[in-house]
Nucleic acid binder design. Structure first.
Lengths: 335, 335
DNA sequence: GCTCTTTATGGGATCGGTCCCACATCTAGT
DNA sequence: ACTAGATGTGGGACCGATCCCATAAAGAGC
């Protein structure tokens, strides 16, 4: 492969001049520029990004640490980041699927070792002390999505889980439901706990007690939804509506409901959370609290890019609103 | 941040010795090793991957170019790659979502500029001449998933779309269906054309003519499935089964079928392709040709890692079989 | 005509590692 | 005791760019 020296020799200028032309800064005469452009074309020269990165300490890479890239939820988020990063001429290095906090920490450090220009983190656990220290030391700009704690983060993008869950609950309440079940996802996730708070808030507003809620906890998966619904249906608890922690849980619950010979929303209503790809294809099509995941990714990338580019962002703490999508899975009990 | 020189000074050895210890090759005395390990720990030293990569021409990064990381299909594939790459101590740089071939080519070249140790490509279009030339020149190991042409590729992982579609069609035929519709996805994709061939093969076997097939073509999306089903149902074509190009198309078709007051599989059967996350949650749960996407990603990564590591892979052309998953969406018409 | 700034260019140090080679010891074999 | 090989270490070139500084010519202002 041709190097910058090859180009400079061929164009009969110094390496400095070629460098200036590639970077597009500094003074360059038209003649020199023409000669260099020609040489670059003739040699098929492409600058080595490793060398460039080493010297300038800018890699053009954004590191993203997310739960599991194979899951649509995270994939959409990364997709959002990528749309925006492309405009900022950055590539995304994805690190995901770590079993434990130690591995996750190691992944963050590895990204820093790679001289990433910035990091976007969506973590289920708080960032460890070790990672925090190194982030602070190296001054890598970090933007965090969700509520996970990272003291060294310079920006945050949060989806308003509290309001989302509260609004969902308000909606069920407004439709006349009083005996409601909530199938919560992983309790160790910050988001889950926020949603629970939102649910409590809506219940308090309506003059209900915490005990009026049937609560089951597990994980964000259809299997859990199915199991939880089976448990619920086996008990004689007179529930009229299920609020599922996410659409996958809802899908599983729907399976169980049907297996029990019941129909939603005639016999029992169901409300989801996320609005994932298949929510509208379920039967009945799922009423759900829409979470704009891709937007979260986009805004996080925008924010990070602004911080890297020394543009003062309007705000470093972005809140994203959820939206209740009415479809066919919740029955109106009001007369 | 501490550099290798800082470590060598502190440990009172040469930079060479430190380097040997980090790389884990060459002769090193126990005393030197202990001193260096201590110094590394005390300084919190972490090797700069840019510098290492520049000199050694190994970046530890695998570049992946896929259609659209936000789509579950591709996300699963990348997830598969990542599982295996982690074992090979490699990170994955994802490039996706390119609107046209020119952008895609540019992305490939960018990955090469980044000194990627290898590339995994899943492309809808053949690799351009330009990219091929540079791949050949730089000798980057490339593994291709799917049928997209890349003359410089050193390995291929193919899902047997022909057999998958043929088996799906055979299944419908075996269940007594004769008037069948096929809703094909994007015709410009190699996979799509292979499936069509498989369908033809099964029809020929059964003594049917190409004209016996009702064919609609569009793209891999629920919207297309819905539109195609609407068109079909509006015509008086007496179809008893729909073979959908993928599960998304099937989901859309199901929506249209229900909207027409019909029920699957009572009034019309439907067969999908992929077995994506929601296939089993549709109503009726979808009988489909399962494509192990994640496995494709895993095997591609394994193959690439083997090539990079100079291990002679058993085969450089891997075929993955599909599997017909019987669920509830196809009716048996046989007496 | 003289100074001051702007424009243009090249030289060489530098980023932080790796890698090759020279050299010194130590052990083993004859 | 002498040689051959294994073990251990340091020196310095090198990877391919960027970046700072020195230098020089051209234009501007008085």
């Amino acid at each position: 492969m041709a190097t910058i020296t090859d180009v400079s020799n061929r164009a009969k200028v110094s390496r400095s001049t070629v460098s200036r032309i590639i970077a597009g800064n500094g003074y360059v005469s038209d003649a020199a520029r023409a000669a260099v452009d020609l040489a670059i074309a003739e040699l098929g020269y492409r600058p080595n990004q490793m060398a460039r990165g080493l010297r300038s300490n800018r890699s053009g890479i954004i590191g993203a640490v997310v739960g599991d890239i194979a899951a649509p939820f995270y994939a959409q988020m990364v997709g959002g980041m990528q749309t925006r990063c492309r405009k900022g001429q950055k590539n995304i290095l994805v690190a995901s699927g770590y079993a434990n906090v130690a591995d996750e920490t190691r992944a963050i450090l590895e990204l820093i070792d790679r001289s990433c220009d910035g990091l976007i983190l969506y973590l289920e656990n708080p960032v460890t002390e070790k990672a925090n220290t190194i982030i602070a030391q190296t001054q890598v700009p970090v933007v965090v999505i969700g509520g996970s704690a990272c003291s060294a983060a310079q920006g945050t993008v949060r989806i308003d889980n509290f309001a989302g869950a509260r609004d969902g609950m308000r909606y069920l309440l407004a439709k006349g439901h009083r005996k409601i079940a909530y199938f919560a996802g992983n309790m160790e996730f910050h988001d889950t706990r926020e949603r629970l708070l939102g649910i409590e808030a809506a219940m308090v507003e309506a003059g209900l007690m915490w005990n009026d809620l049937y609560l089951d906890r597990g994980e964000y998966s259809a299997d859990f939804g199915q199991a939880a619904a089976n448990r619920l249906l086996a008990s004689d608890y007179p529930v009229t509506a299920i609020f599922a922690g996410d659409d996958d849980i809802a899908a599983g619950a729907l399976l169980a409901i049907r297996a029990h010979g019941m129909q939603a929303p005639r016999d029992i209503s169901i409300l989801g959370f996320d609005d994932n790809f298949h929510a509208r294809h379920l039967t009945p099509s799922l009423t759900t609290v829409r979470q704009p995941i891709d937007l979260a990714g986009e805004l996080a990338a925008d924010l990070l890019l602004a911080i890297i580019g020394d543009t003062k962002p309007e705000t470093t703490d972005i809140q994203i609103k959820t939206e209740l999508l009415q479809r066919d899975s919740v029955r109106d009990l009001m007369p």
